[in-house]
Design a protein around this nucleic acid. Sequence first.
DNA 1: TAGTGGTCTAGACCACAAG
DNA 2: TTGTGGTCTAGACCACTAG
Lengths: 243, 243
Amino acid sequence: MAFIKRDERLPLYRQVREEILEKISRGTWLPDTAIPTEAELTKQYGVAIGTIRKAVDTLVNDGLLYRSQGRGTFVRRPDFNTSLFRFFRQQPADGSFIVPESLILLKALQVPPAEASTALNLQANQLAIHLKRLRFLKGVVVLTEDIWLPEMLFANLVDIDSNEIGSLLYPFYEKHCGLLVASATETLTIECADDDTASALKIETGHPVAVIERLAFGFDKTPIEYRVSRGSADTFRYQIEIN
Amino acid sequence: MAFIKRDERLPLYRQVREEILEKISRGTWLPDTAIPTEAELTKQYGVAIGTIRKAVDTLVNDGLLYRSQGRGTFVRRPDFNTSLFRFFRQQPADGSFIVPESLILLKALQVPPAEASTALNLQANQLAIHLKRLRFLKGVVVLTEDIWLPEMLFANLVDIDSNEIGSLLYPFYEKHCGLLVASATETLTIECADDDTASALKIETGHPVAVIERLAFGFDKTPIEYRVSRGSADTFRYQIEIN
DNA sequence: TAGTGGTCTAGACCACAAG
DNA sequence: TTGTGGTCTAGACCACTAG
C-alpha cells in the first residue's frame, strides 16, 4: 500500500508513474538494477497489472527504464557524454561510438560569464569552478570545451588534481560529488573562430565552428553543469528523421 | 474478418497497425478525417478493444494519428513545410510560427547533381525538374533553396506557370500531382558561402552558412523530393532536449 | 442524450532467461 | 522448472463532444 503522496486528480497510472519516478530520482532504485516485478508492484500499489504496465510504459518511452523479457525491468543509467558528440564525422559511420580522449588545460575558481551565471542560477559575481579541456578522437583535436560548475555542489572537486579526472566527467561527478545528470538541453549555433579557438582546433581564425551549449540538470531539475563545446564546422554533420 | 494481408508471426496489435497504416497510405482514410471508432474496429478485425487501442497507440505515438476525446481518432495531415525552418532566429521566440514568403527564381528540366540523382533513385543523366527559390521572413531573405523533383511523378508540374505556385510546396504537390509527403530525413552541415549563395543571402562570400539537405518520402517510402536549403549561420539556432 | 475516447480491472496464455 | 515481461481478452465506468 503505498502511495506516499497521491494527487487524486491524476489518473491512477500517472500516480504510479510519479511514485516510480520518485524512487528513481531519490536513488532508492539504482541505475542498472531491476525494479520490483509487475506482480510485486501490483500488490504494493493495489492496482491492476494493466495499470502498472501503462505507468511503466510511459517511463520506458521516456527512456528512464528499459525492459528485458524474462529478466525484469531496469533503471537506465543516463549517459550524455555522447549526445551531440556523435555528430562529428570522426566517428565511425557504422553507428558504433568511440569514447573521445580528453586533456584538461585549466581548473580554476573564476567569475563565470553572464550566460553561465544565469543558466546555473548563480548570484552576480559568485565564483564557479571553470574547467577548460580539449577532446580528441584518434589523436586529432575535435572539440574545445569550457565547463562551469557551481562551487557549492562541487566542493569536493576543488582540491582534486586534474590528472585524476578521467575522460568522462559525468561518472566522475556521480562518484565524487553524488551528482547524477538526468536531463539536458543543448543549443547548436554557428560562429567564426576567435584566435584562441582557432589555434586550439588547428584551424584558421575566422573559420566557422559549430558551438554546442549544454545545460545539464539533476533529477530534481536543478542545473548542475553549463558547458560550451566548439568544433570545426568542416567535420560537423547532424542528421534527423521526421515522421 | 478483414485482415487483407496478415503476417501470422507478428503480434495481433502489430498486424492491426499494419492494416491501419495501409488504409492511410493508400488514401482510403484521408487526412483530417476520423477513422472508424474503436468499437467499430473491434468488430472489423475481430480482436479485443485493448488490442485495437494498443495498435492505435503506436500510430498516435508515431504522429500518424491523433485522438480527440469525445470526437474520434483522426489521420494527421503531415506538414514538413515548417521543420528546420523554425530554427532560424527570425521566427518569434514565443513558439508561434510565421509562414515564410517565397519567390521562385527558376523552373527548368535539368540534369541533377549526383547527390540529387542518387537520392531520388534516378538513372545517370536522367532529367529532373529543378526549382530555385528564395524564402523570406518579414521581407528579409532567410534561405535559398534548390529543389529537385523526378519528372515522372511531377509531369503535371512541367507546364504550370511559376506564379501559380504558392508559398508552400507540399500542399501544391498533393493537389496537382497527388503526392503526399509522409516522412523525411534532414541533414545539417555547415559550409562557406560561394558567390551565388552570398549574393542571394546578402552576405559576404566565404561567410558560414547552415546547409539543410532534405529528402522527402511518400507513404510507400519512395523518394519524392530532394531539397537543399542554405541560410546564413548568423541566424541559425537549433535547440534539443535530451532525457 | 448518444457516441466517442480515457481509464481501469482481473484474469489468461505465451516467449524468454536463468538456475 | 520458475519467474519474468509480452500479448490478449471481455468486459466496466468515466469525461468529453456534439447535436
